[in-house]
Design a protein around this nucleic acid. Sequence first.
DNA 1: GTCTATATACTGATAGAC
DNA 2: GTCTATCAGTATATAGAC
Lengths: 190, 190
Amino acid sequence: MMNQVKENSKDKLIKTASRLFQLQGYHATGLNQITKESGAPKGSLYYHFPNGKEQLAIESVRLTANFVSEQIVEGLNKTQDPAKAIQNLIEDMAKQFQREARKGGIPIASVALETALISEPLREVCQSAYANFQALFTQKLVQAGFEESRAKDMGVVINSMIEGAFLISFTTGNVEPLLLVAKQIPVVLK
Amino acid sequence: MMNQVKENSKDKLIKTASRLFQLQGYHATGLNQITKESGAPKGSLYYHFPNGKEQLAIESVRLTANFVSEQIVEGLNKTQDPAKAIQNLIEDMAKQFQREARKGGIPIASVALETALISEPLREVCQSAYANFQALFTQKLVQAGFEESRAKDMGVVINSMIEGAFLISFTTGNVEPLLLVAKQIPVVLK
DNA sequence: GTCTATATACTGATAGAC
DNA sequence: GTCTATCAGTATATAGAC
């Protein structure tokens, strides 16, 4: 019923918008560019997203967040030991980051920074994304026997370390920060 | 000679631009708003910055970076032990962040994310800013007897942790990430 | 649901008088 | 160095035919 063989305009718009917001940020990405690259007509955009750019961005961030969450889950499931698992996950992210040669942007950070003060709904969906990432790390730690409260704290810390390393790696065009942060994971979890 | 009692248009423009770029990001900040809030005429902007917005942003990021560097230096000088010093610095930043109630933005991150792929000179000045922050942490560690190579690595890691914690704290409107990262500094430096 | 044409406002940038 | 007027382009958003 809801699974269509052919991709509809709404999905095409969200997919294209997700890519462009991630690559260029919120304000640098215009609706004209999104409709043009998605192939969907502009009238269609306001039919599917009556609240315009803000609503489209909210759904785009949700899509991006789900995609990243899946990557995290898959990565963490590869290894039982949590420290090794998280370290490997970050190193895999660094490899992918290097392969793409910085042509993909950072998943959510730019939209979060640009909109946190001007759109409460957009801020909330970015906040949810980060809360979700943290929860995945925390879950992995709890399953490995970490005490609940410490696992929660370390989820926040690990998420911060990863986001910061992404920011610096992206700005400098060098994956070193990601690799160095990965190496510190076993240290902070000891 | 170069120290004028009265603030000239160029300085007013850079100061205002620094504040607005930090608060709103690069693309959301228009030249009309900068000239209006600075009190400087628009014609004056292109007289002082022939390369327009990009050049103004470069000098604004430099000003912001210098200001942050001074804050870091002052903070690190308060305490001799590097772990304690860095931890206290981050906690002070968190306090200031909370006082401002998220009304100041994050110093450089938004501009860095928005421009790294579209302006090489702007990317470079953001990169320099981060390199400078890292060097200050590294210097503190070397002075305390850390081995040079490890001190460099930890400068990068600490800078990443702080930037990431700022990003998450800003997005969520909660200083917890900054405080938790501060608490981990002695752990990673042990 | 799709598509085009258009409205209004604002963007970065420039010209030229003063 | 200052200031105003204005350019061409693009932004988000809407109206209305199909």
